[in-house]
């Protein structure tokens, strides 16, 4: 194993080792006796690589003044358009309702007048009985 470590170390010093070989070298060094200074140094590197800082605070979105102003205008416009739309819809609905009520009123007026006309025509219906005696007694004209 010592020979293998020496080979890996040689490649390492020459800058010819791969990342995998370097990982293997560190592992083997931690397992064997000797190589104390290299072992300690690589352990220090490994500890350094695990060092973590405080989680940075995620930056808060702050818009420049002009963007905020325009966003304000856009929001106001959107609100205005929405209100205008709702009022318009309401007016439309109201106009439809009024038109319907007018039509219904007109129709009921017509019906009422028709009723009156029908009643006045009832008298004329009685006139058909004028012919009855003539037919009954078979009177020659």
């Amino acid at each position: 194993m010592k020979e293998h470590i020496d080979n890996l170390l040689e490649k390492y010093w020459e800058g010819e080792s791969t990342l995998e070989e370097e990982k293997e070298l560190r592992f083997l060094l931690s397992e064997v006796q000797g190589y104390e200074s290299a072992k300690e140094f690589f352990l220090g590197i490994s500890e350094l690589s695990q060092l973590e800082g405080k989680e940075p605070v995620k930056p808060i979105v702050t818009l420049p003044f002009w963007k905020r102003t325009w966003l304000g205008y856009a929001a106001s416009l959107a609100l205005f358009v929405s209100i205008a739309f709702v009022v318009f819809q309401h007016q439309q609905q109201k106009a439809k309702q009024e038109a319907y009520e007018q039509v219904v009123a007109a129709l009921s007026l017509i019906q009422e007048n028709m009723q009156k006309g029908s009643e006045s025509m009832e008298v004329l219906r009685e006139l058909r009985h004028l012919q009855t005696p003539i037919n009954l007694f078979d009177i020659e004209q």
Binding site: L48, S49, L51, E52, G53, K54, P56
Partner: peptide, 22 residues
């Protein structure tokens, strides 16, 4: 962030300062 933190630490040698720099 972790790699950059360690790089900052390498330069400033102080964990608090490295956090601030990051």
């Amino acid at each position: 962030k972790s790699k950059l933190y360690r790089m900052a630490y390498l330069w400033v040698k102080d964990r608090e300062v490295a956090n601030d720099v990051l």
